[in-house]
């Protein structure tokens, strides 16, 4: 699925990374706890979260993710946008809640696919 499809399905707006939304993504995960996100790894290219702070961007960067979707109408601040620019991570924002946003993407073929190590 392309990021542009994620954007359309979630009726999201692009906060940053318009030129990168043609990229393909193959799996996703949703959580407000970053340590839980860090526990599962397997090319999870999209992170859906309602948490808004710089550690969300850093977590995505450590995991080699290419897109973050902020749910529940949360909007990242300028510092987060600058960090995302440095890392080339697309930022989307949607009014949908985490459960709904994950469900929409999952039912349209974007799987979880996270494998927990150890």
């Amino acid at each position: 699925m392309k990021i542009t499809t994620v954007k359309e399905l979630l009726e999201a707006k692009v906060v940053w990374g318009e030129e990168l939304i043609g990229k393909h993504v193959y799996s996703a995960c949703g959580s407000d706890m970053m340590s839980d996100v860090l526990a599962y790894v397997k090319d999870q290219s999209v992170l859906l979260t309602g948490l808004v702070n710089s550690q969300v961007i850093r977590t995505a960067e450590m995991m080699d993710m290419v897109c973050i979707v902020f749910v529940r109408s949360k909007v990242p601040n300028q510092e987060m946008i600058e960090l995302a620019k440095e890392s080339g991570i697309v930022l989307l924002a949607t009014d949908k809640r985490l459960y709904d946003a994950c469900g929409i993407l999952y039912s349209n073929g974007l799987c979880g696919n996270g494998v927990r190590r150890g």
Binding site: M33, S35, A39, L51, N53, Q55, T59
Partner: peptide, 12 residues
Amino acid sequence: SLGFGAGMGLPN
């Protein structure tokens, strides 16, 4: 509230 402190740091 910042997304950490869930007791996953050392295990991770």
